[in-house]
Structure formats: C-alpha cells, structure tokens
Nucleic acid binder design. Structure first.
Length: 480
DNA sequence: CCTGGAGTTGTCCTA
DNA sequence: TTAGGACAACTCCAG
C-alpha cells in the first residue's frame, strides 16, 4: 500500500518551488488541503480585497490540481484533527507562515500532532532568509535596514535555486467534508470588484507572466523609473508574493538570469534586490517584535497628540482631500486594490503629518483595500512613514503633495487617470487647483468645492503643527 | 567599553 | 534657475 501524506497549502499557492509539497510528493500520495481559518487572526481578519484575490488564487490552484484541492473552513487544528482521524497519514507537510498569530497556532498544532505520534515537516517556502537566521554578532535582531541587508546578502547564504514542480504528483481527493470554493464566500456581495478583475491575472501562471513581463520591460531603468507612478517600472508582484503564487527565490533567480539575457544594468538589479531585502527585513522585525501591527515601535510616540476626526479620515479614504496626487493614490487603491509605492509614501505622509491622524487608521484601511495586504510589510511600512518605526528618519521629512506631484507625475498622466474631474487642468496648476486663476478653472470645467473638493487642510499650517507635535515628544527612547 | 560613521525615499530658504 | 546648506539629536552597529 502506498503511503499517504497530508499537504497543507497556506501562503504558498503554487506548485513550483514549493519545498514542502515537493518533499510530500517524493514520499507518497498527497492529499492537498486548504483551510480558510480566520479564528487565529484575532482582529486582523483578511480584508475584502485580499479575499477576492484568495478566491481566484484558490480557483486557479484547484484547476492546476485537476480539481483535487480539498477546501475547508474553520479552526485549522480542528480540521486537521478530523482529517487525521478519518485517514491514515504518514506525515503532514507545510511551509511555514511567519505572522505572530500563525506562529502561535502552528506550534500548538505541532505539539498535538506530536502527541498523537504524527510526524510534521515544515519548510521555508516564502522567505530568502529565516527571520532568526540574520542576527547581529551579539545575537540580537537588526533595527537598521542597510546593516541587516549587508549581513544577509554578503555574509548570509545566497538564495538557493528554486525547485521544480513535483513530478509525479499523485493526488487524493477527499470527498467526505471538502467544500466547493464558493462556500467560503470570499467574493464581495456588491459588485465593486469588477475593476479589480480587469487589473489582475491571479494565480501561479499569472505571477510567472508578470515576472517575465517585468524582466522584459520593467527592470531596465528600475532604479530611476520606480519612483514614477505613471511608468511601468515596478514589478507589481507584491500580491503574488504575499499569497505565495511565486516565491522570492524564483523572483531573485529570475531577475539574476533575466538581467543577463536582457542586459540589465547592474544598478537596476541591485536596487530591485534591495526591495526584496526590505520584505525580508519586515518579516525579521515582525518576528522579533510581534507588537509591530499594534504598538509604536518607539515608545515615545505613545505621547503623540493624534487628532481624532472621522470626517477627515473619511475624506482621506475616499480620495476627497483636495490634494490631487493624494486623491489619485487613494482612488487607485480603491479601484485596483493596489497603489504605487511612491504614492503610498505620499498618502501616508499626508495622513500622519498633515492630517495628524494615527498611522493605525492608515494601516487598517490599507489592510482592507490592498490585494497585497501583508501584516509584516504593512505595519513596518506604516510605522516607517509615521516615524515611529525602525529608522532614524529625521522628523522633518514631511512630503509636500504639490511638490511630489509635480516631481513624480510631471505630465499628470497618473493623476488625471484617477482624478478625471481634473483632466482638463493644465500641468502648471494640476497639483494645486486652489491657486488656479478663475479663468483657468472655468476653462477646465472645474468648480472648487463642487466638482472637486477644496483642500481639507492648509499645507503650511498643518506642516508646522506636525513639527511642533514631533518636537513635543520626550527625548528618551525606549523600544517595545 | 569606547569610537566614529551612518541612517530608503524631503523641504525650504538663500545666495 | 539652481545648487547647497540647515533642519536635532539620537540610536544603531561594526570595529
């Protein structure tokens, strides 16, 4: 009789370079399982945009598996318990997840399986370096990116070669309790996701195509071009990486090989690698400081005089602040489930430093709206923007949304796309319509306060207020 | 323990 | 028009 293994799909919704699946398939038949489990996630339940993505990703995966993906919902531990009591498995395989909720839940699962004498084998399928692997000489975690990255990439192990998809892969369909995908109810009730559908090709094939496309036409000039939201110089692989439709090793080696065949300048490649490094750094930080999604990393920020203003927050969320580059970004997020990185910094800085609203509001909104919502990246990045996080960014770094717009979207291509009511404004005042003379507004068909909002705050005074607030923080620093 | 260089992404004013 | 300096003081980290 052939041995049967349980393989548990999680944030690794792919067949290629899937170390746990590869090993499971080597030693017997595989019962492939996905469990939609929200119980362990506390108050970070999966947001609407991510649910939409997950639905399509599971659907694509199931197709690749010939319909033999077994889907369940409920507490992971209970589902697994049910499965092991109904079937006899040689071992259980999975790739590790690294958010604090999963780490806790997984160690419980591991210990109860151990008690029942069932072997579990867990692997690293989603990071280049384990979060506990890259440490300072004194054994403590890094708090500065450059030092972390140098240690990891220069002295650490070069990312290993990706594995092929398992072949043969003999799958077992479970028929007693497995659910059809639609039972998970992941698609939104209202049809707001039509615009998402036009944007993305979800699934492993889509991720591979996206990488290929990036290598062919995006990576050249990445170093400069990545700052301009209207250009196609960013990879947009973040959701694929989050759900594990592609692994960071595949991306790393794809770029390495692609940069040779497409003659990519060394600098472009290095800058892109650094971004993969940032993802690793975020996971490193979340692992060592699990409060990151909740608490200011720098304790002195607990004293920050955040404003409480629901109306202002709503205007930011809906892209109605009266600052065109900010509104364009927030509307891109809503329409596509994504926002260009440069614009994320601009809208983040605006929320925190001009509206003086707590970064956790931004974190939560992004969590719900982003298809790439990722606990590590999202919380580390928001704290970076707020200045409460792990870099020594000077407090006076406050983005000016007018200057940023003029600099990074000089022809207004990006901004006009998402703020069409300003499409006839000339470049000279596109990013500051409140300064436009009456005849120009008229010619562009813009009525401030009616067709497009007046600025919700004044830049000069709000900037000054922020600087004062930062200055009011106590000097001594205590880390979480 | 001490030392010194460095720290993702800016803005504004002045000459 | 453009380039350079001020904007604080601190922690982090390697040697």
């Amino acid at each position: 009789m052939t041995q049967k293994n349980l393989f548990w799909f999680r944030q690794d919704l792919r067949l290629s370079d899937n170390p746990a699946l590869y090993e499971a398939a080597q030693s017997g038949e595989v019962m492939a399982v996905y469990i939609f489990d929200e119980d362990h996630r506390a108050d970070f339940r999966m947001g609407s945009a991510s649910r939409w993505w997950l639905h399509h990703s599971l659907s694509a995966l199931n197709r690749k598996l010939g319909g033999k993906l077994n889907i369940y919902r409920g507490k992971s531990q209970e589902v697994i318990l049910r499965l092991i009591s109904e079937y006899s498995f040689q071992a259980i395989y999975w790739n590790r997840c690294y958010d604090p909720f999963r780490i806790k839940a997984d160690s419980e699962i591991k210990s109860f399986l151990k008690k029942r004498g069932i072997e579990c084998k867990s692997f690293n399928g989603s990071l280049l370096w384990e979060p506990w692997e890259v440490m300072k000489e004194d054994g403590t975690p890094y708090k500065v990116f450059t030092a972390f990255y140098q240690k990891a990439s220069l002295q650490g192990k070069y990312p290993g070669r990706p594995l092929p998809a398992p072949n043969p892969l003999t799958l077992v369909k479970e028929t007693l309790n497995a659910l059809p995908l639609t039972e998970l109810g992941l698609l939104p009730k209202i049809k707001w996701h039509a615009s998402l559908e036009r944007q993305w090709v979800v699934g492993e094939e889509g991720a591979q195509d996206r990488l290929a496309c990036f290598l062919e036409s995006g990576l050249t000039n990445y170093k400069e071009g990545r700052d301009f939201p209207y250009r196609q110089n960013v990879s947009r692989l973040s959701p694929c990486l989050h759900f594990g439709e592609i692994s960071p090793r595949q991306v790393w080696h794809g770029v390495d090989a692609g940069s040779t065949s497409f003659h990519i300048p060394e600098q472009d490649k290095e800058y892109f690698f650094r971004e993969l490094g940032w993802r690793e750094f975020s996971y490193h930080l979340l692992y060592h400081f699990p409060d990151f999604p909740y608490q200011n990393f720098q304790k002195k920020f607990d004293r920050f005089p955040w404003q409480v203003d629901e109306t202002l927050l709503k205007k930011w969320q809906q892209g109605q602040t009266g600052y065109p580059i900010v509104d364009a970004g927030m509307r891109e997020l809503w329409q596509t489930g994504y926002m260009h990185n440069r614009v994320r910094m601009i809208v983040g800085s605006f929320l925190v430093k001009n509206l003086l609203l707590d970064w956790r509001h931004g974190e939560r909104w992004f969590w719900d709206c982003l298809v790439d919502a990722d606990l590590a990246n999202n919380s580390v990045s928001w704290q970076w923007v707020a200045g409460s996080g792990v870099d020594a960014a000077p407090y006076f770094r406050i983005f000016n949304p007018v200057t940023q717009g003029e600099k990074f979207d000089p022809d207004g291509i990006y901004t006009r796309r998402f703020v069409p009511e300003l499409k006839n404004m000339p470049n000279t005042c596109l990013f500051k319509p409140w300064e436009a003379p009456e005849y120009i507004l008229k010619a562009a068909g813009v009525i401030l306060g009616q067709t497009y909002p007046k600025p919700v705050v004044e830049l000069g005074t709000s900037r000054k207020k922020a600087l004062e607030a930062f200055a009011s923080l106590p000097k001594e620093l205590q880390f979480a």
